[in-house]
Computed example of a mutant assay.
Amino acid sequence: MLYSVLTGLLCGAALGFVMQRGRFCLTGGFRDMYIAKDNRMFYSLLLAIAVQAVGVYALISFGIFQFTAGTLSILPAIIGAFIFGIGIILAGGCATGTWYRAGEGLVGSWIALAGYMLMATVMRTGPLGWIQSQAYSNTNGTNSIAETLGVNVWIIVSIFVAIVAFIIIRELKKPKVKIPGLKPKKTGIAHILFEKRWHPFFTAILIGVIATAAWPLSAATGRMFGLGVTTPSANILQYLVTGDVSFINWGVFLVLGVLLGSLFAAKMSGEFRFRMPDVKTGLNSFSGGLLMGFGATLAGGCSIGNGLVMTAMMTWSGWITLACMILGTWTASYFVFVRPLKKAEAKAAQAVTA
């Protein structure tokens, strides 16, 4: 247990620290792809996936641990991921983003986290548990892309890495836009860690390395998976309600570490402060959290478990759910941001011509 506590907390703290300082927000990234036509965060996600894919399959090749992709259930992956995408817009952050923003003192994220943990628990062992078991009663063959195509997984990984490298090099060649900032108050390593604006690609590489390290650290405790948020979040609530210590594993300490790492980063950078949402935002956050918990559990993972980890393992479920999460995010963004703006603009135009 001591090993699980130490390595889980350290790995989670590293992830929370990096995500907070690098402002690695997939919700904002997916939203900006649609609204602002800005793909930088999505490209950063692809880079993190590529780094993890190479690292994890190298570890597997050396016999450090084993991985089985399992079988694919398409329908729950599509429906669950789409609902999850809608939920993260209402909640103001994805599953991991909610944990790290809670560490910044954002009360709305705590509210979203409560809804997320509650619904994930209800979907796993509560009255809605039958939905997941029924949804996964039918499968659609192997979940491994390489097995489906009948090729070595390294061929898939190599092609993906080449595509990502091309995208990243193209982006780095674009003219840099200088953003004026305040005069630095810190110097040396303190300035770099707690004050300097991190490049999203640098953040992505660090996240890819942390995601890679999570696999052997977790596997050593008998948990054969890397970074994951939904099941550990549900396990925390299940333990608090039942007192059953079997719910406490490496993943639980991982998500608690994310909170602590983000809290430390926010405090040291001067970004921590309690921010209370208004009633409407609070209700949206809780509703979004409920949708996140439902969707992530049905889809078998959140934007990290599926969108970062299972994509790196080159599984169908990972890439299908990532695409559907983005579509869900875009759908919610239209109704939450774009449509109200268009109505306001139309109303203003009518007022001018009246």
Rank of each mutant, 00 (worst) to 15 (best):
I163A: 14
V309Q: 08
P175E: 12
L260M: 02
I168Y: 03
I86L: 08
W330I: 09
G222M: 12
G16N: 09
K183F: 13
T68M: 14
V279M: 07
T331G: 02
W130Y: 07
I163G: 12
S233N: 12
A69Y: 02
M119Q: 15
T203H: 10
A344Q: 13
W130K: 01
A13C: 13
F84I: 07
F42V: 06
S158F: 06
I210C: 01
Y57R: 14
A220I: 04
N39K: 07
N39H: 11
L75C: 10
T353C: 08
A135Q: 04
W99G: 00
F225T: 13
I35W: 01
E104T: 13
K196C: 08
N39E: 13
V336T: 14
S61F: 08
S73A: 12
L90V: 12
L263G: 06
A77C: 05
G97H: 03
I86K: 07
C324P: 00
Q350N: 13
K178L: 15
I78N: 09
V309F: 10
L118N: 09
G228I: 05
S262G: 14
P184M: 04
T321V: 01
L72K: 01
L237D: 03
A332Y: 06
I83V: 10
Y136T: 07
L59E: 01
I210P: 04
I86P: 04
S158N: 02
M117G: 10
I167R: 11
S61L: 05
M314Y: 04
W250C: 03
M117T: 02
G282I: 08
I88H: 04
F337N: 09
A13L: 08
K267R: 14
H199Q: 11
G188I: 09
E271D: 13
R21W: 10
I155T: 04
V245I: 15
L259G: 11
A135G: 15
M19C: 05
A162Q: 11
A14G: 13
V56C: 03
G318A: 08
N140V: 10
D278A: 14
Q66P: 00
V309P: 02
A53H: 00
W250L: 05
A190N: 15
I35F: 13
I236L: 06
A299G: 10
S262K: 09
A349K: 06
L240N: 06
Q350S: 15
V338W: 03
K185D: 11
A299H: 07
P216I: 00
I320G: 06
Y34H: 13
K347T: 07
K174M: 05
E171R: 11
T331V: 11
G295V: 05
I145M: 02
A296H: 09
M41N: 09
C302K: 00
L15D: 03
N138I: 15
E171M: 03
K280C: 14
W316P: 00
Y334I: 07
A266D: 04
M310C: 00
T121V: 15
G55K: 03
